[in-house]
Write a protein that binds this DNA or RNA. Structure first.
Lengths: 238, 238
DNA sequence: CGTGAACTTGAGATTTCTCAAGCGGGGTGG
DNA sequence: CCACCCCGCTTGAGAAATCTCAAGTTCACG
């Protein structure tokens, strides 16, 4: 198991040995972090991209009065702030677990993108997949019940973590509190708790002690109207 | 007033005269359309990008049982399916009004992007801004009341249409039904109707007969917690 | 005029929220 | 080593936002 970022990118574009090597060098500078650490903030972002290599994190926006919307859960291999390369960040990233990330200066990134259109396209695709996930969440928050929304999120998390090789059998680490889940889904903690209990009682899925256990994948998919197409995991084949 | 696509792209990257000319040629093939026309569908998308030049449209996903989620309202100058260049579409685009769009073969697009990194970056930025809008809608649907959500949407539409030069004074064409609005915001038509009435009665804003009238911009912004930063309209300056 | 789509209104039903309180486990200071 | 405390989980119950159903109205258009 090599560099998870390279593995991730490889889902969306074919990389040569030389390109992988270049990316490995690009991700040379690495720093460890712990749960709750703010990995990226609009202010402190500076001129760097951050690539998650180990552990989990989440992107979120905080509103003035304490409300929070979680926008995405991040898995190893994800770039946390690709947007920052071109636009300036409008949200932040916080760690869920211990882990490690690489810090890449924008100049180095830029230089590589300039000479290598293949990698540039891969990263562009990465940002398009991210947008596809946002759209799917919009559908959920706009048009799905709390029950379906939660089931859908659990499906997504499980599939994405399985792809990174983090899942083991029917379970994967998912170190979130019920508060995280409610802020991701636009629900209150109380209601999230109650829905999770029904999923648990029905033997469908169980989120507990930082771990997601999928007890009945078929029923979970059904409950969440989950169709993994939007994750575009087969795009590299195209 | 030249090509609205070039004007749009210019917000995000500086274009030379030669580049503008190349883009103008790229958008050579144009077709008219009428309200309700399906401009882009996953099936019929083929190997083309579609660029809106005149009129308005909306991106949406339809669920099995008739539920619909509108993902974005499109203004002249927008690329309707940039994603299709790299990933395959997972939603469709329908026209709101009469108008005109350009149809660009993927090969021509690809060829231009290969030789011109500046335009490639501009388009990449365009897709990042789109993602930023998605995130903002997520925040709205997850954490804002129906009242704030509607106000926020009206702010966004007004600002974006004003940038394209379509707005006139305090009003702009916005040919949507209340059903469109509810499907964009994740509300029922009845509730949308009632909230619109309060905005109207309070002299804040008025959506009627295909037109949005902003009667009190300050209060509308306030009601929607609207901060246009996420539209990144000043990015070209960077 | 006739018609259909869009808008509006009323009223009861649901979902989801808020407030409030109790429980439980892990971490820490004494 | 134990008691305490905090955070996260759970439960109960009333409140609020929003939905659904159903019917009436308006308006543009043929």
């Amino acid at each position: 198991m090599g560099n998870p970022f390279i593995a991730n990118l490889s889902h969306y574009v074919k990389l040569t040995g030389g390109e992988s090597a270049a990316l490995d060098i690009l991700l040379g500078k690495r720093v460890p972090f712990g749960p709750g650490d703010e990995l990226v903030t609009p202010g402190r972002a500076g001129r760097h991209c951050h690539v998650l290599l180990q552990g989990q994190a989440f992107r979120h926006r905080n509103l003035a009065d304490g409300r929070r919307q979680i926008l995405l859960f991040q898995a190893p291999g994800d770039v946390l702030d690709l947007q920052g390369l071109f636009l300036g960040l409008d949200h932040e990233v916080t760690a869920l677990s211990r882990g490690e990330m690489a810090i890449v200066p924008h100049e180095a990134m830029d230089a590589l993108l300039d000479v290598n259109g293949n990698i540039a396209r891969g990263l562009w695709r990465l940002s398009l997949v991210e947008a596809a996930i946002f759209r799917e969440w919009m559908v959920g928050m706009g048009r799905r019940s709390a029950h379906a929304r939660i089931a859908h999120l659990l499906c997504e998390v499980f599939v994405r973590l399985r792809v990174t090789g983090i899942a083991q059998g029917d379970r994967c680490p998912f170190p979130v509190t019920q508060t995280h889940l409610s802020d991701a889904l636009g629900l209150s903690v109380v209601h999230t708790n109650r829905v999770l209990q029904t999923l648990r009682a029905d033997g469908v899925a169980d989120v507990r002690q930082g771990q997601l256990v999928v007890r009945d994948w078929q029923r979970l998919k059904l409950a969440g109207e989950f169709d993994p197409a939007y994750l575009h995991l087969a795009a590299a084949a195209a």
